[in-house]
Write a protein that binds this DNA or RNA. Sequence first.
DNA 1: TCTGTTAGATTGTGGAACGATTCAACAGAT
DNA 2: ATCTGTTGAATCGTTCCACAATCTAACAGA
Lengths: 233, 233
Amino acid sequence: MTESNEQNPIERITPVSTVEATANALRELILDGNLEPGTRLREHEFAERLGIARHSFRAATQILIGEGLLRREPNRGVEVPILSAADVADIYKLRAALEVEAVRLVTEAGVVPVAAQRAVTELSALGENAPWRDVVWPDQRFHMAIIEASGSERLKRAYTDLQSEIVLCLAQLRPAYDQPAEVAAEHEELLEPIVSGDVAAAQRLMRAHLDEAVENLVELYGERSESAEDGQA
Amino acid sequence: MTESNEQNPIERITPVSTVEATANALRELILDGNLEPGTRLREHEFAERLGIARHSFRAATQILIGEGLLRREPNRGVEVPILSAADVADIYKLRAALEVEAVRLVTEAGVVPVAAQRAVTELSALGENAPWRDVVWPDQRFHMAIIEASGSERLKRAYTDLQSEIVLCLAQLRPAYDQPAEVAAEHEELLEPIVSGDVAAAQRLMRAHLDEAVENLVELYGERSESAEDGQA
DNA sequence: TCTGTTAGATTGTGGAACGATTCAACAGAT
DNA sequence: ATCTGTTGAATCGTTCCACAATCTAACAGA
């Protein structure tokens, strides 16, 4: 037997199926904000535009529905969900559940989330007037890095889905970010008790960080709905 | 205007689509353990047996894949996943994240999870030699009741998916349960700090409860794999 | 024993068809 | 004038069929 032959270092090729590729393309479209929330995705139109069968498009949307990025209205197809302030609050409840526990797991295990540190340096390298999207991505990566450091596959899966919704929500709100330097400092502070092994402090800080974020977002919703009422009146 | 007419108490009718009904049927099959883990679900066979089109069956499986109840192997269709001890440990990491946070939300809000209390009384009403499944369901309902009491839609959604995996795992293991009376007592104890408003104690107890459960399950896996090796040797 | 080769089964995808549902426009009735 | 049906176009949900790509196992030959 040649069971002991070393693993060939060849990259495992992964042919992406049509529906998978479609799902990825759609996800990108949605998360980049190129699809107005509330937009109805007509099957015939999209299938033709993407050069695929209607069935494949349907399968792709089914995936995104599972991720919370699309919503199906019976007999009316799928559309990009419009998130309310309540949704944001709800999203952040789940987010806190996942992240505070991840922080706990990581800190207790003594794992140092290197990728998170990298994200912080990226943040601090940004100029003063960096567009909000350039701030969002390192920010997301920072938090994802902590989740990944927890080593739980399912925690990561749940968080990945949730992060999609978070980005969707941010894309709809275009929140005003603080100075990148401030953001970087706050995240670095977040990291400190994690590497020093102070579980309680790490959890407390993370929760405060998230509470502050959701507060700002909900406030932003308030402003937006006010101006919306103005527009209607 | 008759906008102020009271809500008619008529039950909202919900015509279930074919794929939805199929997904439900499949879910039940899997969770009841009527489909051996590792079983390959051949499309033609199942579509014919269920009297639906192959496409509809495909759409249904896509839903269950999103819930973690089926796994897709490229070009080999879908099959019931076989959970390892590592999977169980992983499942319980996520479970702890969700439940400990739910306990926190519920306790802080001062909400009394009545449905959970009902589940406890159901448990205590069981006879000594109740089959494990009769114990599992009130147990699951107890925990789901706490999740629901948290009032977070997404927390519930995440937990619902996870609970499916838990049940799948239990179905594969057929764990030996303690006396129903003991189980009832432990859960009642779990409820106590929640209603009295002691957040820290409530979280601590819940975590201990879950830790103990996962420990037992992993141990059970050890025994099972031993006997499996015996069988092969 | 190892290596093609071949045939059958199954999946992945596309395409046509058709009933059911939605929606808007419009006509008729109270 | 408001409410109630009707009609028709657009779209969805589902089925059936076709076919290339892939997998699997059996088999023949070196």
